[in-house]
Design a protein around this nucleic acid. Structure first.
Ligand SMILES: Nc1ncnc2c1ncn2[C@@H]1O[C@H](COP(=O)(O)OP(=O)(O)OP(=O)(O)O)[C@@H](O)[C@H]1O
Length: 779
DNA sequence: CCAATAACCTTTTTT
DNA sequence: AGGTTATTGG
């Protein structure tokens, strides 16, 4: 028996309409994903073979989630169902059929962003393109590819663009080198698939017959090439089921285009459904979201409503600086957790990932476990990329980029001059570098160099042999050991220990993959890694809160959401400020962030922020006022520190300066001699902008308790006052104004003693024991 | 010809 | 602050 979710009558009707084209244009949290999932199950329940069903999701995370849900709901009857992202769907097709294209074989590499950039840079170098033109190439190649235009077509469409000839020649050469390397970049996965369907009608027909029922989630973020693929696949049976929300289109910078929706309406004449009831969030959250998104001019008006409770008012907290912001967030999270909130229902979201660092440090401080997504890029780490390049070199020997990357890693005494020489031989003979290096005996170079190349060549030969014999994880370990990729990092420095840990982590990720995917090959692993870009976390970790970019939080939901860094220039980003379209996209992004919250939304900003090596005073984000949140008009400057919250949630209610010193003291490790006589006047650059010296360790996967210990020992160095000893964490107190509360935090600075008290409904107050009218009720 | 060091530049979001 | 490139020293 298929177990369907609860559905309202419209949702129900949508799910049971199985034939024909449908467009579900619906707001955030209205159940789009739920409807799509249930429809897939309904089809299976009705007897449609899962083999005939395709569901396209936006992220790998969403793929996994939907797969699990459908499997659970259908009692495992979903076997053979295809749920994939566009890119992995295309990659799968191309593994099978790329041999149809001259020069490619099934071992092709998929280039991620950094590989792509590296190749482009090399091409620019090869063609000796001047700097100013070079800067424009990336943009042009990417827009060409997003529109599905080859170099000639792009040239024709952009005849009047300055220097277009040079730009297009770079594009052309870039494609040539990709081909020589038997490699495809992300966009090529889509483009080559389209080309395949176009050039080989029998293959297209095969897939049209196979995927009689097609579903697409997050349709508003598809680009033209993706639409064309959908069109070709779906035009025969016209069973296309597409869901999306124009207000959540946040990937236009990657070519996403909502005119896809208009084209879909014209091409398929779908039945259109609108869902406007939100089942996720409280009334307060929804009304703020509605107020914000109304500020976008170029949008079809729709207003979300909900029958959920009013819930708590959205809270807005202006902090003094990024340290205090982090402290505030960590403290609030601590309170939520101590009230029994499931950590997995807490999310901290941000526009730019660089803001996460401070938050992570404070969370470590509080001993709050967290996972990050879209922030710590495991596969971008140099030591990890090096291992992958070695493996990729063996898998796809035609790819010169790998060889160039690792020929001198670890240092073998082979420098740029030698590499250039080898490369020119490769160009002239048309043989890949691996081949040339393996046949080092024929090289015309000095004896010393030849020896060095010989060592490397012999290594490659050995790898090629073992690759055939060993399992992929054994092979990876073999490569790491033989090439000395871990021995490179043998110093006792924290960085080196980290690097070695990452390499070990990589090995276990390969083992996991091996275990989870029977019959999978190293090719599959490498592909999944480039398509995922972040390390999948295992479930057996302790329940953690999430830190994420808003982009990466697409489609997710949390009971409690913190949106941090609401400052002009940061969110909205400065680049978007003078461009109406980009500004609207920022606003949509904010809208997505707000609508992730189910129960309560906390918004914060820092009045002064240290970022990119500079400290800057900030201006409150325009989105705050657009949401109808009143910002207290208080001048920045001096040490006045009472900033009222939108709700009465004044955190550091007393003099911030002394409080700040409290932080300085433990961040530093030992006390400084300011605080008494210099009260209120020494917030000079020097004692203000220092940073604690420990390195942040990301808790994306186990380990690194190291850091915690370090922080804990720092904490213990805080000088604790002998006075007010009874005001400990957990003690119940009475305040003349706020009533009964519980101490959740105690903090002592020179001469001042602070407690944070949770007064339940009233909120949390930080009070100075020296002044506050507090009495102990119960110890 | 290669490795280590010093100056320099650029900071968004991700399949 | 961090990564990349130009310069110098070996
Ligand atoms: N008919 C319903 N009854 C109760 N809960 C529902 C119903 N429909 C959806 N929900 C709940 O509402 C929340 C949002 O659903 P879902 O994630 O499918 O929305 P969505 O439209 O895809 O959201 P987004 O656009 O933000 O990705 C989920 O927690 C889901 O369980």
């Amino acid at each position: 028996m298929t177990k369907f979710d609860d559905l309202n009558s419209i949702q129900q009707e949508i799910v049971q309409n199985t034939e024909g084209a449908y467009l579900i244009s619906a707001g955030a949290g209205s159940g789009k994903t739920r409807v799509l999932t249930n429809r897939v199950c309904y089809l299976i329940d009705k007897g449609v073979s899962p083999e005939n069903i395709l569901a396209i999701t936006f992220t790998n995370k969403a793929t996994k989630e939907m797969q699990e849900r459908v499997t659970r709901m259908t009692d495992g009857k979903a076997f053979g169902l295809t749920i994939k992202t566009f890119h992995s769907f295309c990659a799968g097709i191309l593994r099978e059929f790329i041999y149809k294209f001259d020069g490619f074989d099934k071992n092709f590499s998929v280039y991620d962003d950094s590989n792509q950039k590296a190749l482009l840079k090399k091409v620019i170098n090869d063609l000796k393109v001047s700097d100013d033109i070079a800067k424009k190439c990336e943009y042009h190649i990417s827009s060409a590819k997003n529109l599905g235009l080859d170099p000639d077509e792009y040239l024709k469409d952009n005849r009047y663009e300055p220097n277009i000839d040079t730009i297009v020649s770079v594009y052309r050469e870039y494609q040539t080198q990709l081909k020589n390397n038997n490699a495809l970049d992300f966009d090529d996965l889509l483009l080559k698939t389209l080309e395949l369907f176009h050039d080989f009608p029998s293959i297209l027909e095969y897939f049209q017959e196979k995927y009689k029922y097609i579903h697409v989630d997050e349709f508003q973020d598809t680009n033209l090439v993706q639409y064309k693929i959908l069109y070709m696949l779906g035009i025969k049976y016209k069973n296309l089921f597409v869901v999306g929300d124009e207000d959540q289109c946040i990937y236009t910078w990657r070519g996403a285009n909502i005119t896809n929706i208009k084209m879909f309406i014209e091409d398929f004449k779908p039945k259109v459904y609108k869902l406007e009831q939100n089942y996720r969030s409280t009334k307060n959250i929804i009304s703020r979201a509605n107020l914000l998104i109304k500020n976008n001019i170029s949008r079809i008006d729709k207003t979300l409503f909900t029958e959920n409770d009013d819930g708590d008012e959205v809270s807005f907290k202006e902090c003094y600086d990024e340290k205090e912001e982090a402290e505030y967030v960590a403290n609030q999270v601590y309170i939520l957790k101590s009230r029994g909130v499931d950590p997995r229902e807490i999310g901290i979201l941000m526009r730019i990932s660089s803001l996460s660092r401070n938050i992570e440090e404070k969370l470590l401080n509080y001993n709050i476990p967290y996972v990050t997504s879209g922030i710590f890029k495991f596969f971008d780490r140099l030591e990890v990329k090096n291992v992958l390049a070695y493996l990729s070199m063996v898998v796809n020997p035609k790819d010169n980029a790998n060889v160039i990357r690792i020929i001198n890693v670890p240092k073998r005494g082979i420098g740029q001059t030698t590499i250039d020489k080898l490369e020119s031989i490769s160009r002239e003979t048309g043989s890949p570098l691996t081949e040339i290096i393996e046949n080092f005996r024929e090289l015309d170079v000095s004896a010393t160099i030849k020896n060095k190349i010989a060592d490397f060549g012999n290594l490659i030969v050995k790898f090629n042999e073992e690759y055939k014999k060993k399992s992929m994880s054994d092979f990876a370990e073999f490569v790491i050991n033989e090439a000395g990729l871990k021995d490179m990092y043998n110093s006792k420095s924290e960085e080196d220990l980290d690097r070695k840990l990452n390499i070990e982590q990589l090995i276990s990720s390969i083992k996991d993959f091996e275990y989870e995917n029977e019959n999978a090959t190293l090719i599959d692993y490498l592909e999944s890694v480039t398509l995922q870009s972040s390390l999948e976390k295992k479930d057996d970790n302790e329940p953690s809160i999430s830190i994420s970019t808003i982009h990466a939080s697409k489609g997710l939901e949390f009971d409690y959401v913190f949106l941090i860094g609401l400052e002009e220039g940061k969110f909205p980003l400065s680049r978007a400020l003078d461009n109406a379209d980009e500004l609207e996209e920022e606003r949509r992004l904010m809208y997505v962030g707000i609508t992730r919250a189910k129960k309560k939304l906390y918004i914060t900003r820092a009045k002064s922020r240290f970022l990119y090596g500079r400290r800057e005073d900030t201006i409150c984000s325009r989105f705050i006022e657009e949401m109808g949140i009143k910002v207290p008009k208080r001048q920045f400057g001096g040490f006045s520190s009472d900033y009222d919250d939108f709700v009465s949630n004044d955190y550091y209610s007393n003099n911030y300066k002394s409080n700040y010193n409290a932080h300085s003291n433990y961040s530093n490790g030992y006390s400084n001699n300011y605080g008494k006589s210099s009260f209120g006047n020494n917030l000079s650059k020097s004692n203000y902008s220092f940073d604690s010296s420990y390195s942040t360790k990301k808790q994306e996967f186990g380990g690194s308790s190291n850091n915690l210990n370090k922080l804990q020992s720092m904490n213990s160095k805080v000088s604790s006052s002998k006075k007010f000893d009874d005001f400990k964490v957990g003690v119940q107190v009475f305040h003349t104004k706020f009533g009964v509360g519980t101490i959740i935090k105690r903090e002592d600075a020179e001469g001042n003693n602070y407690v944070s008290v949770d007064f339940g409904k009233i909120g949390v107050k930080t009070l100075s024991l020296n002044f506050a009218p507090l009495q102990i009720l119960k110890k």
